Computed example of a mutant assay.
Amino acid sequence: MESYRPVSLRDSSKVTLAGAAQVVVGTSAPIREVERALGWLAAAEVNLLLQGEPGSGKRVLAEAIHLQSPRGSGQFYAVSLANRTDSQIEGELFAAPGEGLLGDARGATLYLEEVGCLPMRLQRRFVRLLRADPSRRNVRIIASSTSELEEAVRLGRFLPELYAHLGLIRLTLPPLRERREDIVALTEYFVRRYCERAGNGAIRVSRSALAELTTYAWPGNARELQQTLEAALALTRTGELTGERIRTVLGRRPRRHVAPDVFPLRTLERDYIATVLTRCNWNQSLAARRLGIGRNTLMRKIKSFKLEKSEAA
């Protein structure tokens, strides 16, 4: 069984604060509301329910709330309830010694990801424990869900008593497509963080790249935006991130709707191999090891992609 691990934010406060900034980057009305609420949510010391689509920043916001709360010097316990068996969940939340997480997390914050996946039998047990002696446990619970728990209550899939315990304060994080004006600010933030971590010089985001980014639907929200930018930046060998590079990562066709000469995945492979070769100073043996392929395979790909040292430099 995969066991939970406490996360001590005292040793990673810089990372967590940087992540917390991700939640409040932007100027849209919804994100301004989140920014204004952050302080009092941290101080409230009551259970909290965060709702929103995958990648909308629920975990990041939960960490930020913990860090700014009176419990911020303690531990942040996080456990995902999705794709877990009943016995795994029961073992983590309720099992002795220490009565599982509900006992071990005294004085800390317990983050329950996808709380709607909690089986009904364990929902009832959870309610009994919360009713028994909540003050003795002294655990602040921040729960999250990608589905509407109120609807689950109506359909009889989630106990109204547990919903009342967890959802004393409810906050819904908006999807990125509903705050498109924040995409540019988030892009600048993610690009700057990437360059700082990679030790690279500044990379400029072209107008064509911004056009691609601001017209995409982002079903994976801010997380997908971050991952897309990091993949595109890893393949960028100049000081500018272009719209073509964004299209390559997203697998989108050019705006003129003419099929590209090369299938996007092949383009992605070609550019990645060229990047690795450059970083290895065209030492093909070293590049092959880093790519996880044989040297002969790499040589065939170099020939197939018509790569030249001057091009990849």
Rank of each mutant, 00 (worst) to 15 (best):
G201S: 11
E240Y: 03
A21I: 00
R204E: 12
R207Q: 11
K58N: 08
D182P: 12
L38S: 14
A222C: 15
A20V: 10
Y272V: 03
F158S: 04
S285I: 14
P30C: 06
F305C: 06
E230H: 06
E308F: 10
R245A: 13
A108E: 06
G199S: 08
A202N: 14
T214K: 14
G19D: 14
V60I: 11
A78N: 13
A78D: 10
G243W: 09
L49M: 09
G103K: 02
L166M: 01
E45V: 09
E2A: 12
A82N: 10
R180C: 07
L61T: 07
I246A: 02
I203R: 01
R5Y: 04
L186P: 12
E99W: 00
I31T: 15
E53C: 03
I183N: 07
A217I: 14
S144C: 08
V205H: 00
E99T: 04
E212D: 12
S8R: 05
A18H: 05
K309F: 00
V191T: 09
A132K: 05
L225W: 05
V262Y: 11
T146S: 15
L277N: 10
S145N: 06
R193D: 14
D271W: 00
L235W: 01
Q227D: 13
P174R: 05
F263D: 15
Y272E: 08
P70L: 07
L118H: 01
G201C: 04
A152D: 14
L122Y: 00
L168T: 13
E196D: 12
A64N: 03
G19F: 07
P119Q: 02
P160S: 03
G243T: 07
S135N: 13
V46E: 11
L291H: 05
Y4Q: 01
L168K: 10
L130E: 08
N200D: 14
S147A: 14
R121H: 12
R128M: 04
N283V: 04
G156Q: 04
G19S: 12
A62M: 04
I293E: 03
R36L: 05
G292V: 01
S69F: 10
L298I: 01
L50Y: 06
R128E: 09
P54D: 02
A108M: 02
S28H: 07
I183M: 06
W282M: 01
L101M: 05
A232P: 08
V249T: 07
V139R: 03
Q68M: 12
K14T: 13
A78S: 15
A96N: 13
G39Y: 08
D86L: 07
V115T: 06
G91A: 04
W282E: 02
C280M: 05
L186T: 08
A82M: 06
L241T: 09
T275F: 04
V184L: 03
E161H: 04
R32N: 13
R170E: 13
N138D: 10
V15Y: 12
R300H: 13
Y189H: 15
Y111W: 02
A42Y: 03
R179L: 03
L48W: 08
K58P: 12
S206I: 06
A143H: 07
R5S: 13
P119M: 01
D271A: 11
A152W: 09
R59Q: 12
L81D: 00
